[in-house]
C-alpha cells in the first residue's frame, strides 16, 4: 500500500491547474490575432490571404474611410495574416480565452482614412499607405521630401494624364531647341 502511494507521489499530478491558475501555452501557439492599428497601412493583404474570410475590408467612399474587420467567430487561427503583413501590424497573441455570450463582441474593427487624389478629388488609396511608400523609397536611397507628397497623392489615372502632358510639352520644347 505504501509502495503504491510512493508511486503515485512520484508520478505527480498530470492535471493542469487551469482555470484556477493561468494556462501556459506552448511556444508558437496561435491565439487571437491582434491588430496594431497605428502600424497598419490598410493595404488589405491580410484580407486577401485569409482563407476563412474572417478578415474583411470595406470602403466607404462617401465618408473617405476604409474599415478593417476581424470576425473572431470565423477565424481559424492559421496565421496567414501575420505572415503576409508587410508592416508587422497584425500578430497572433497567446490569448485563447475568447468565449463570448454576445456575438457582437467577436467583431474587432479598425477604421482608416482614404487619400483623396490631389487632382480629381477621388479617394484611391489609404492615406497611410502613401506615407509608407515614401518612407520605403527613402529607405532604398531615393531622396523624397514632403514637398513631393502631392505627386504621390495622385490617383493612377491623373498621374498618367500628368505624364502625357509633361512629355508632350518637353517634346515640343526639344523640337524648338533643335530648330
Amino acid at each position: 500500500m505504501l509502495k503504491l502511494f510512493k508511486i503515485i507521489a512520484d508520478a505527480g499530478e498530470a492535471t493542469a491547474k487551469y482555470p484556477f491558475a493561468p494556462f501556459p501555452v506552448s511556444p508558437g501557439f496561435r491565439g487571437k490575432p491582434e491588430l496594431n492599428a497605428a502600424q497598419c497601412i490598410a493595404c488589405a493583404a491580410c484580407t486577401t490571404a485569409c482563407p476563412a474570410n474572417a478578415l474583411t475590408m470595406g470602403n466607404d467612399t462617401a465618408d473617405g474611410t476604409r474599415t478593417w474587420q476581424l470576425n473572431l467567430g470565423r477565424c481559424i487561427f492559421c496565421g496567414r495574416c501575420e505572415e503576409v503583413c508587410p508592416t508587422h501590424a497584425i500578430v497572433l497573441t497567446p490569448e485563447f480565452e475568447l468565449a463570448v455570450a454576445n456575438k457582437a463582441d467577436l467583431l474587432q474593427k479598425a477604421t482608416f482614412r482614404l487619400q483623396q487624389c490631389e487632382q480629381c478629388g477621388q479617394p484611391f488609396a489609404p492615406a497611410k499607405e502613401i506615407g509608407y511608400v515614401m518612407d520605403l523609397l527613402r529607405q532604398s536611397g531615393v531622396a523624397v521630401d514632403e514637398a513631393r507628397r502631392a505627386e504621390f497623392a495622385s490617383c493612377p489615372a491623373c498621374k498618367r494624364k500628368a505624364t502625357v502632358t509633361r512629355d508632350a510639352v518637353s517634346q515640343h520644347l526639344s523640337q524648338e531647341a533643335e530648330q
Binding site: K32, L35, A37, A38, Q39, C40, I41, L72, T87, A89, E97, L98, A99, V100, A101, N102, A104, D105, L106, L107, Q108, K109, A110, T111, F112, R113, K128, G131, Y132, D135
Partner: peptide
C-alpha cells in the same frame, strides 16, 4: 467574459 468588441480609429498623427 474577457473579450470585448473593439473599434480602433486612425489618429491624425498615426504613421506606419
Amino acid at each position: 467574459q474577457k473579450l470585448k468588441g473593439t473599434h480602433q480609429i486612425e489618429g491624425e498623427a498615426d504613421r506606419a
